[in-house]
Amino acid sequence: MRNSRRLALGASLLASLAIAGVAGGGALVSAQDQPTVRIGSDGFYESQLMAEMYAQALEANGFEVERQLGIGARPARVEAFESGQIDLTPEYVGSGLGFYVVGSEDEELAAIEVSGDGETNRVNLQAALDVAGVGATVLAITAGEDTNAAVVRADTAEELGVSSISDLAGVADQVTFGLPPECEVNALCRGALEDGYGIAWPPAQLELLPPCGAEMAGALEGNAIDVAWLCSTQPVIAQNGWVVLEDDLDTQPAENLAPIVRNDFLEGVDGGADAIAAILDPISAAVTTDVLTELGVRIAVDQESIDDVAGEFLASLES
């Protein structure tokens, strides 16, 4: 166990060196020149996985890394980021943007749109952070994405004849919803369901469960809930033959992942934002939707450790 871990770490070290060498050229610097980077993430596995990849890649390039993975849901993590308790965090560009702009009282922020295109959302998220006065830089987005998805069991879809969230709105009082606790204050969750699809809030039958987690999936599988708010890359969806309801009103934005980094931290980095980008961009480029799903299976289903999975993925980039 210990050996395999060390091996994985060593491999990832090599891999990251190689990536940095190829992509950045000047990114290799001696350890003592680089500041400690504090990396934070959301509570569920995918956010932790991306954060762990960033952490191992940065460690391989001479950064000291302090991990604060699994902080919680976005509102808590964003506050930790804005207050400077963490320097770097993976963010879903769509929801991250929505957090700042949807329903904002600031006219300038409210004017920024959340779109169905990941790169547009990245650019807009950068703009929103600037307007909101958060000194931070959004780096390149992942090739793949993971969106929020309303998921039902196949038998529910058949019995109630639902294939889209609009269909679901018609039978909303006959089903039990499973939603994350922060949905209530999330414009892309409650806002989409209530204002977009006209589903009365709160739903008559509602269970609050952690987002994108095994608990929510287990509850759907065990018939305790009928509609689960899951992440589209969650492996259980395909495994159980569940039906992802079509978001026919396009309420859910494109959700590619991008590292966001505090500018005050970047100022202390030898080489600045370019040095960090040279290390992390190749990772983002390699993370496709298939990769997110596949690595998700290894963590959520096969119970492999996030450390190992992240390390081996980084090592695989080398070849």
Binding site: P75, A76, P180, P181, E184, V185
Partner: peptide, 9 residues
Amino acid sequence: IIDGIARRD
């Protein structure tokens, strides 16, 4: 407690 943390309330 759980909802308060999740909603930053």
